[in-house]
Every structure is written in structure tokens, then in C-alpha cells.
């Protein structure tokens, strides 16, 4: 679905279907920029940054049958912001964003509140696989065994398993951060040959080496790795075609040297030439090969690793199960039998 997000003159962020009301050409055809109004290049219809149609070429031709300019605005998509992040929802009846995120926000709200971020990295990847499979790579710490980086820097830590999943059943979100004693989990980057521990440029509110992950249902993950933040977002283009976007955040206005160092540390782990993210894409595409033709009809999501009462350790599948429970609730069909239920409904 082509969308365009703008900051209107009243400073509010708005999103519109990026489709001219006349013949459906994209009104804005460039990924980013500045403009006072949006002009369709096809027949030069023009829209303001509130989505109103403000110009129709030779508009007298519409006097007989319309549409008038007042009838030809862009369709607005519900948009809200939280911590400087822009969220969109096609469901006009959805609960307010802050209520939707709920208590899960606490994991990154303080970090975003204390640091003034800007984007320092962007890439997108088209992959052969389902969007849920990608998102769940960000929810499944058990898959860290597949990464050399995680095997050497995370899994060697004796307290790796002492961080609980803190889950929000209402929204379907979850996060892992501090341990039960509120001490940080510290990644030992120096254990990967050629890397150093992240002791400098530490983001405010974090300890050196600290790692925090927040998963926002259904498709957005916020990773914080001491010096930089990764916003990871999966968009379904089809059942077996996913576009994954990675945005890296650094500190606004800092020196070019510091910005470069943060970007460097971001791309050690994330981005298309990193040591981790390319492996993650391979995991999803390989699984898809077997799922596509029914060789693998079911994933095993049964891991249970209790951490005290009512909490689960990071390599439990508890959050993955919560994700599918929420998916089933919203889709009105069980995740373990979605097609049969569709047939029954028809």
C-alpha cells in the first residue's frame, strides 16, 4: 500500500494513501524530501499537506459531474507518534497508540527520553518469506545459537539466561532488558575476534555493553545495543514476500567522528554486510523453502524455561506463543489451523 507521511503546517504528522484521487498515480514518488504541497506528475492535480486537493487542472471540466476539489482529497490513514517514532494503523477503531503499547513502553521510553536521536543508517531487504517469520527472529532468542556473534558474545555470559521476558498479553508485546535484580545484561563484544567492548559513547540511561530488546506487536522491534538503536520493521508484500527495513539511530548533532563510530558499531551486527542480519535473512528464506510446499507444516514453539514465578527466560518460546495467541485473536482463526477455518467460514 503506497503511503506518504508528512509533517503538516500545524506540526502534526499525518499519513495519506499516496495515490492521486484522479487516476491513481503516486503523488509523491521519492522516498524523502521537503515540499510545500504535493503535485501529481500525471495531470498536475495538487494537494496540500493536510491532504486537501487544492488544484485540479482545468477544473471547469468537473463542474457538471464532479468531483469537486472538496471531494477529491487524499485518504488519511490513522497516524500517531510515540518517542519520536511514527506509527500508522489502517484500523480507524483501534485503541489509542499509547494505550496499545501499554507498559511495554517502559523498556525504551526512558532511553528515548534521555537521548536525542537521529537516523544514521537505513536499508531495506526484500526477502522470500512470511513477515511473521521475520518478526519472530526478533522474538526467538533460541535462534541466537545460529549466530557466531551471539555464540561468542552473549551465550558465553553466565547470566545470559537470567533476563525474563516481560510480556504484555493485552497488546501482544514483549521485552527483555534488566535481570530480576535490575542489573543489566552485558554483552561481551571483545569475545568476537576483532571487536572491542562497548565502553564509550554509551547512550544515556544504559550501562556499557547493555542490551535491551522490545517487540511491538505485530511487526516492529526496537533493539538497543549500548551505543546505537535499531528499529526493525517488517512489511508484508504478500504471503511469501516481506520487506524488512532497518533504521539505525545515533545522537543528533554529535561530531562526525562519533556518528561514524556509532554507525560502525551498528553495522557490526546489523545491516546487509553485518555479521548477524544477513544470517537472519538466510534463516527466514531457508525455512520458507520448506514451508512453501508443505514440507514443514508446523513450527515447534514448545520451549518452556521458567525464571521464578510467572516469568520465562529469554530462550523460552513464551513470547512467540503470545504473538500467535494475539494473531489468532485478531484474525479470528487459530494460528495452528488458519486455512481450514477459512474454508469453514466460506
Amino acid at each position: 500500500m503506497p503511503l506518504v507521511t508528512v509533517r503538516s503546517p500545524d506540526k502534526k504528522v499525518r499519513t495519506f494513501l499516496n495515490s492521486c484521487s484522479h487516476r491513481g498515480s503516486r503523488v509523491v514518488r521519492y522516498p524523502a524530501g521537503n515540499m510545500k504541497h504535493m503535485t501529481c506528475f500525471f495531470h498536475l492535480w495538487e494537494y496540500d499537506l493536510y491532504g486537501n486537493c487544492i488544484y485540479q487542472t482545468r477544473d471547469e471540466g468537473y463542474e457538471a459531474h464532479g468531483p469537486t476539489k472538496e471531494q477529491a482529497g487524499l485518504r488519511e490513514v490513522r497516524t500517531d507518534t510515540f518517542c519520536g517514532l511514527v506509527f500508522m494503523n489502517f484500523d480507524g477503531n483501534a485503541v489509542p497508540l499509547r494505550e496499545y503499547i501499554g507498559e511495554t513502553a517502559e523498556a525504551f521510553e526512558s532511553i528515548f527520553g534521555e537521548n536525542d536521536f537521529e537516523i544514521i543508517h537505513y536499508n531495506q531487504t526484500h526477502m522470500k518469506g512470511n513477515w511473521k517469520a521475520w518478526f519472530l527472529t526478533n522474538c526467538d532468542f533460541y535462534h541466537e545459537w545460529g549466530h557466531q556473534v551471539n555464540r561468542s558474545t552473549n551465550l558465553t555470559s553466565p547470566d545470559y539466561h537470567d533476563r525474563p521476558w516481560r510480556m504484555n498479553p493485552t497488546g501482544g508485546h514483549g521485552y527483555t532488558g534488566r535481570k530480576l535484580d535490575n542489573e543489566p545484561f552485558v554483552v561481551q563484544y571483545k569475545n568476537y575476534k576483532g571487536w572491542k567492548n562497548r565502553d564509550g559513547l554509551v547512550l544515556k540511561g544504559l550501562h556499557p555493553g547493555e542490551l535491551v530488546l522490545t517487540d511491538l506487536f505485530p511487526n516492529t522491534s526496537v533493539f538497543v545495543r549500548t551505543t546505537c538503536v535499531r528499529i526493525n520493521h517488517a512489511t508484508p508484500y504478500g504471503p511469501d514476500h516481506t520487506v524488512m527495513e532497518e533504521r539505525g539511530l545515533g545522537i543528533k548533532g554529535e561530531s562526525e567522528e562519533d556518528r561514524r563510530q556509532r554507525a560502525k558499531e551498528f553495522t557490526q551486527v546489523w545491516g546487509p554486510f553485518s555479521r548477524n542480519a544477513a544470517e537472519d535473512v538466510a534463516f527466514v528464506e531457508e525455512s520458507h523453502r520448506c514451508q512453501e510446499f508443505g514440507a514443514n507444516k508446523y513450527d515447534v514453539l514448545s520451549r518452556v524455561e521458567p525464571l521464578g514465578d510467572n516469568l520465562q527466560r529469554p530462550q523460552s518460546d513464551a513470547y512467540v506463543r503470545l504473538f500467535y495467541e494475539k494473531w489468532s485473536e485478531l484474525m479470528g482463526r487459530p494460528a495452528n489451523n488458519p486455512k481450514n477455518l477459512m474454508t469453514a467460514a466460506e
Binding site: 521519492y30 522516498p31 524523502a32 524530501g33 537516523i119 544514521i120 543508517h121 537505513y122 536499508n123 557466531q148 568476537y192 575476534k193 576483532g194 571487536w195 561514524r260 554507525a263 560502525k264 553495522t267 545491516g271 546487509p272 554486510f273 553485518s274 555479521r275
Partner: peptide, 23 residues
Amino acid sequence: VEMRKDQNWLDVNQDEYRALLAN
């Protein structure tokens, strides 16, 4: 184009590059 800035997707010195290839 999205950020309207240059970016590095890999940025290493000689030691880091040698280690990267060894890994």
C-alpha cells in the same frame, strides 16, 4: 536517498578487516 546522507555499511581498519575475514 531515504536519509539524504552518505552512510557506511561496513567500516573497518586493517586489523578489523583481517579479523573479519578470519571469522
